[in-house]
Design a protein around this nucleic acid. Sequence first.
DNA 1: GACAATATCTCGCTCAGCGAGATTCTTGTT
DNA 2: AACAAGAATCTCGCTGAGCGAGATATTGTC
Lengths: 162, 162
Amino acid sequence: MQETGEVQEQDAGMRVVHLLRAVTVELDRIGERFAARHALHPTDVRALICLLDAARTGTSATPGTLGAHLGLNSAGTTAVIDRLERLGHVRRERDTRDRRRVLLRVDEGAVALGWSFFGPLIHEVVAVMGRFDAADQATIERFLAGVHEAVTRERAGREQHL
Amino acid sequence: MQETGEVQEQDAGMRVVHLLRAVTVELDRIGERFAARHALHPTDVRALICLLDAARTGTSATPGTLGAHLGLNSAGTTAVIDRLERLGHVRRERDTRDRRRVLLRVDEGAVALGWSFFGPLIHEVVAVMGRFDAADQATIERFLAGVHEAVTRERAGREQHL
DNA sequence: GACAATATCTCGCTCAGCGAGATTCTTGTT
DNA sequence: AACAAGAATCTCGCTGAGCGAGATATTGTC
């Protein structure tokens, strides 16, 4: 990794790549920890996050949207919802307009659970941001937005050829 | 996924948190895509990354270190290595010093496979970094290092109470 | 009303990962 | 040297997540 400090200038990019990867690995691990602690599977955590996102933005979630989001089969999606429902984190409610559909309502306890997971992380990141002045914060934000856009584009490109 | 309309979070910290999360989600998805395309499981990809890291830093990998890194059981670890070996990505070699141990050697093809996965991503991130001057790059690096340190500490703290 | 499309669920199967324990080799003790 | 304790890995049997195929119920269209 540390090749005697050669080519220091352009290696900032490489160091940042490795830092980004390290951060994602850590976040994944925290997710796994959280899952294990609450008798959930990693997939269930992802599902819960997805449902909380939907609740936060006001959009109503259904088994279909959830499954698409998680990349799961309809059978697998049913299984995930069954598990979450059994734990009382989510309820199924028939849509009165289109009675084929089922609306997924997250329980209050699940929202609290979500915050107990994200809260400390958010706090940490906000604290780190606090060490920088407004101009630097804007720089950081632009960088992350750029990475997000680039990575999303990369993925979209890979989806192309199957 | 997208924060359309929701302007309540004008706090830069919050926006950065969401960006970080979005980036990790995208990276995870790319990993899944990569896995599906090469007849690998997500765990196998993580294992491959771990082995490539070891090869890159010169440290010799064993089933034990790999399993610890992946959070797998010894039985599960054996299974992962079996799969990778069957695909020709890794070879088992008895350690001549401590003949209880097995050393894991990654095949040349696996290294190439790793680069075909990471290469484009690295290129993208480096390109984004190229949009910033040296001072801003240093800021970004300090920020990510700070987040990494904070997140790692968070996880360590959670490991505490089981 | 017959028909295709849509949303969800059921059934049977495969295989990743777990726990328990077997195997092989090393190291320290006597 | 012989033996016990420990370490690294592997084998076996099992549970359960997720898949494919198909069943069921509901909607809009002709």
